[in-house]
Amino acid sequence: MIDDYREAAPLEIHDLTVAYQKKPVLYGIDLEVPKGSLVGIVGPNGAGKSTLIKTIMGLVPIGSGWIKIFGKSFKKAITRVGYVPQRESVDWDFPVNVLDVVLMGRYGRLGLLKKPSKDDKDIAMACLEKVKMSPYANRQIANLSGGQQQRVFLARALAQESDLYFMDEPFAGVDAATETAIIEILQELKNRGKTLLVVHHDLPTAKQYFDRLLLLNMRLVAFGPTEEIFTMENLQKTYGGRLTILSDVAVERNLGVKVD
């Protein structure tokens, strides 16, 4: 706990606004994520979930406001941040094998002109072992299933040995076994004091997987411990009319939310 006081929060966002060609996507986001939390970022399509992550990663320009990572700018804290992009964001026909992809996670620590060493390869192999993909180390990435691709991405993130992770829909289109494997690893990382922010699509599992939720719909609807945040009122605010399509009974059963 002492660490929490000595060190700045892993992620602090103040009054962040982001716009794509004058059309605002995120408005006035204020946020402070405590160390060691596993945060699910939840919201409808077009709520700006991916944009929020991309903005923090410096991939989308900030309109106004600021973002601090461990009290520093993203550029200065870069080696402490790991990123798992959406699986579809890369060309899986690319001429590399599984181990090559995981080794990329080590590049940030190597710096210019240095090549991955034996140690880096050992770490990469150990990360593959963790996601149960080591038998596939020499396999061309085109010959992997969706779940296997996601595990390779996760292994790469592990190889980055970061303190703060951003993951964009790691559960999208994966099989049940992979989903369990991923959530186990996320839990383990959290228990080791890492901070994780995960974009998530599925409401029923969101409640189960994450200890904190960030409900987003262009504005920050709510952020805090899952038990406090996961209320019908907050979900209605986040999803607007879209949630009312479900009957109250179905909402109660599927989401475990008490409907008044």
């Binding site: 990663m57 410096g58 080696t79 941040v81 990123y83 992809v101 990329m104 590049y107 940030g108 190597l110």
Partner: peptide, 22 residues
């Protein structure tokens, strides 16, 4: 030869390359 890893990662995954500080 000198910049192989940077060329590789920037070609494969721009998002990751950026997050690695490249």
């Amino acid at each position: 030869n000198l910049f192989y890893k940077e060329l590789l990662v920037t070609s494969f995954d721009v998002g990751l390359a950026n997050s690695l500080g490249i």
